[in-house]
Nucleic acid binder design. Structure first.
Lengths: 154, 154
DNA sequence: GTCGCTGCAAATACTTTGCATCCAC
DNA sequence: GTGGATGCAAAGTATTTGCAGCGAC
């Protein structure tokens, strides 16, 4: 991801904020940059750490509030991987995708499947449901862990 | 669901408990019955209420602990619908299915799609991932809420 | 009778909120 | 200068844990 992309996301966020009479502060800017510059799925604590590592003082409450705004702006998505806290990832830099989580090592693998997406729309239509979003998570053992646990295959 | 089914689930749970040197108590038995006799997705608080309505004194901690055991036994599944707490449902009485949650009224619609399941297995195989479980949740507006919010369709 | 189970209360974990001060616009 | 933003601490909500007494086996 290039710096140019940052600019793009930042101005998109700024536009969103302006449209609601809100402001782009240093903390909001820096958080946006952190989110946009990684493909990892970060928790609030991890976001907090990364911003602080850059010597920018920031409070936990601000992270929660900003993360919320970024999601509202559609620039970020929250996920619950059943670990007790939510994790967040940028919607940019990679297209829509879903996740597989290894129950052995915790590794998260992303994947895309056009056909599954299409079928979801079919299902929704069949129920006259207006689809806004979806979340598909698969749990199991990644290739390395499968080798280590030949018996745990269900 | 018939009483006969209860027996089946109960003895399955009992077998599970026995295999771990654990006991089938009144509280565990009653909770199992409550879970097995509804198709709703109940929260811990709701489970607590239902057992208490039956005049059986029970503590919240016991519900948490039992729910955990029932999940381990594979008799129940937990779901996170992004409402701040987990909800649980029996695995019996209805086959595997996924969920659509209406962001308008909170209604939960269940659906099944063989083809999506099959595609998931394909994806897993492609990544040499040993699939153990999955969770597909779709969010949007149900048919009634779609009528009320013609503009909120994304 | 033993050892697991229960309920309470306390502890923990994550997230939200109130408020005085601060700063983007 | 004004009104939104920040950070702290307190509050809120969901869940887990320690422990003394209880009860299934």
């Amino acid at each position: 991801m290039t710096p140019r992309d940052d600019q793009h996301y930042l101005s998109e966020f700024e536009r969103f904020l302006a449209s609601k009479g809100l402001r782009l502060t240093v903390q909001r800017r820096r958080l946006t940059e952190v989110v946009m510059n990684t493909r990892e799925h970060l928790s609030v604590d991890e976001l907090l750490d990364r911003v602080r590592q850059q010597k920018l003082p920031i409070g936990r409450a601000t992270v929660y509030r900003t993360v919320d705004l970024l999601c509202q702006a559609g620039l970020m998505h929250g996920h619950d991987f059943g670990q007790g806290m939510r994790r967040y990832e940028s919607v940019f830099g990679h297209e829509h995708h879903d996740h597989m989580r290894c129950t052995g090592c915790g590794r998260i693998i992303e994947f895309q499947c056009e056909e599954i997406e299409r079928l979801q729309e079919d299902v929704a239509r069949k129920h006259r449901f207006t689809l806004q979003a979806h979340r598909l998570e698969m749990f199991g053992l990644c290739s390395s862990c499968t080798k280590l646990n030949p018996r745990r295959t269900k």
